[in-house]
Design a protein around this nucleic acid. Sequence first.
DNA 1: CTCTTAAATCAATTATAATTGATGAACTAA
DNA 2: TTAGTTCATCAATTATAATTGATTTAAGAG
Lengths: 109, 109
Amino acid sequence: MLKEIPLIDHGLEKSFEKYEKKFKALADKKRLQIMNILTKQGSTCVCDLIPIVGMPQSKLSYHLKILLDANIIIKETKGTWSYYEINMEEVNHILSEELCCILKPGNSK
Amino acid sequence: MLKEIPLIDHGLEKSFEKYEKKFKALADKKRLQIMNILTKQGSTCVCDLIPIVGMPQSKLSYHLKILLDANIIIKETKGTWSYYEINMEEVNHILSEELCCILKPGNSK
DNA sequence: CTCTTAAATCAATTATAATTGATGAACTAA
DNA sequence: TTAGTTCATCAATTATAATTGATTTAAGAG
């Protein structure tokens, strides 16, 4: 039985849109820095991130939201505090072992 | 001997800038489509790509340049023709095995 | 040389993303 | 209640990226 090769593969198109969003989230050095800090620090609240990353709160919130919406980080709210951490499962699914290393502790030696 | 932990790690900063560029190149579904076609087709010239990807020549050239500058694809010129192909080594260094699969033949079944 | 084709580049427009300071919502403590 | 804190969101601006059609460069063919 012959398999039809469609001109436009809608499954792939969906995939490309999904990965476009994730790569967009990764395509910013400030967000890569945030990810690097989260991998070093583990779960961290926004108020502690502010002095480390050195950016105003609204800006940090903006970038955290982009990473969150792409499922690259996870948020957990405890009372007034919001704790963010890397979604390691997701990151490992996207990035190479080599690249994942800059997002894992013990690399910045 | 104690190791100093710098507030700003310039080595990491350079890395982040490098990866920012690569992720930016990947962060577009049209470019992911181009990459997918190049993995299926192998080395392909621009004039053959135009009808496959269905975009005007100047637009295609623009997107190919972004992928080329990020070292994600390789260009080889033969006379009037320019042939492009995936830089597999680079792609494998960045992306997970799982994700590399959408950029390898035999996946679109 | 001229004519054609291939592909890159340009300039102008349009679209998308990032930054900023201010405001608002939700929780805690007094 | 009131005041203080954490964080998200808003609106306005600025910056960056994508799209378009036209032009340009370069390589063959005749």
